[in-house]
Amino acid sequence: MMLPTLLAAAALPLLQNGLFVGAILFSLGLVGILTRRNLIVMFLSAELMLQGISVSLVAWSRYHGDFGGQVLVIFVLSVAACEAAVALVFVLQAFTRTGRLDAAAWQSLREASLPRSVDHEIPAFNDAMPSFPRLTQAGHSPATDEAAASQRDHV
């Protein structure tokens, strides 16, 4: 039982370091949610903020020697799961309506007399991007390439 006493002596620095890490994660998540235009990345940033909160809660839990903080983090996890489910549905809906995952695609909700905000000087992106597997939407039968299918030598 060497470890607990050792750690108990350093309880306050451990709390401070934990809280600090939580604060950094929270602030970075905040910057992400404020700047990134992609709806998915915005939600990732929100999850980042939740992680920061979780770290802080666990740090306090450790300091006080109480399970309350950890229990709260379990609730945070559950709520994050719910939020992710509903939010992704909304993102999908938004995507089917506008065809974009851009938060600025909804700027027609602005004040009527204001001009449209148009992006200027969009930097070119020359890096080669790998193509990711494509998923078809549920309810649609995927278009199959008959010629390619017949020539496949292995399945």
Binding site: R36, R37, V91, D102, S131, F132, L135
Partner: peptide, 20 residues
């Protein structure tokens, strides 16, 4: 999954710029 459903390849303009 959602990303691949909606935006399987490439970057849209909105990914290349940020807001404020």
């Amino acid at each position: 999954f959602v990303l691949m459903l909606a935006q399987p390849s490439g970057l849209t303009t909105s990914d290349r710029i940020t807001n404020e």
